[in-house]
Amino acid sequence: MIEDRRRPSRLSGFRVCLIGGAFFASLLAVLQPITRYEDCPNYGGNGNASAFANPAWDFYLTLLLFGWVVLVVLEQTLSVTRRGRGGADVALRAAAAIALSTVASCGLFVNVAVLCH
């Protein structure tokens, strides 16, 4: 009897990473944070200011970015992600997805949330 196995998806292990990246790109497009140091409300002075119109987004963005990395790590531990793949391929995809989401979240945090501080 021939088993009718579906071929594993090429995006297996990268779904949460890609969806999260699209989510953060659209979120930043909607929130329109300050992207230049000269546009900060405290430019030329002392103190902390936010790159967002609502300063609470500094905290929310940090929390969402941390949650995104946690979800990417959780996706890598699911058996559905590893189905039908060899050990080295799974480890390489997991390392790439975790590294990509971590670097992207740290880059977003440094560039946006810390700009006016």
Rank of each mutant, 00 (worst) to 15 (best):
F109G: 01
E38D: 12
A88W: 09
Y43I: 02
C116S: 02
V70W: 15
I34G: 04
N48I: 13
R83C: 01
A49E: 05
G87W: 03
G84N: 13
F59W: 10
N48C: 06
V90D: 07
S9M: 04
V112S: 02
D4M: 14
W57A: 09
A49N: 04
A99N: 03
F109S: 01
G20V: 14
L65T: 06
G20W: 11
A88P: 05
A51I: 09
R15Q: 08
A104N: 09
D4C: 14
A97H: 06
V69W: 00
R6Y: 07
T35V: 11
A96G: 10
F59E: 09
A25W: 07
L71H: 08
V72R: 01
T102K: 00
Q32H: 15
V70F: 15
R82H: 12
Y43T: 01
L92W: 00
N48R: 10
T102A: 01
A88D: 10
G44I: 05
V16E: 03
T81H: 06
V103K: 07
T62K: 12
R5C: 12
P33S: 05
V114G: 05
V70G: 08
S12W: 07
G44T: 07
L71K: 08
F66S: 08
E3Y: 13
A88F: 08
N46P: 08
A95C: 00
A96E: 01
S12A: 13
A99L: 05
T62C: 09
A22V: 09
V80Q: 12
A97P: 15
R7D: 05
G47M: 00
V30P: 08
D58A: 05
I34D: 02
G107R: 07
V69Q: 02
F24Q: 10
Q76Y: 02
C17F: 13
I98V: 15
D4Y: 15
E3N: 14
G21Y: 05
W57F: 15
Y37W: 13
L11F: 08
A56K: 15
F14S: 13
A97S: 13
I19L: 10
D39W: 14
V72C: 02
A96Y: 00
T102L: 00
S26H: 14
G67D: 06
Y43E: 02
G21H: 03
A96T: 10
V16I: 07
S101L: 01
A29H: 13
N46A: 10
S105N: 04
E75F: 06
L78F: 13
S50C: 03
R15W: 02
V73C: 04
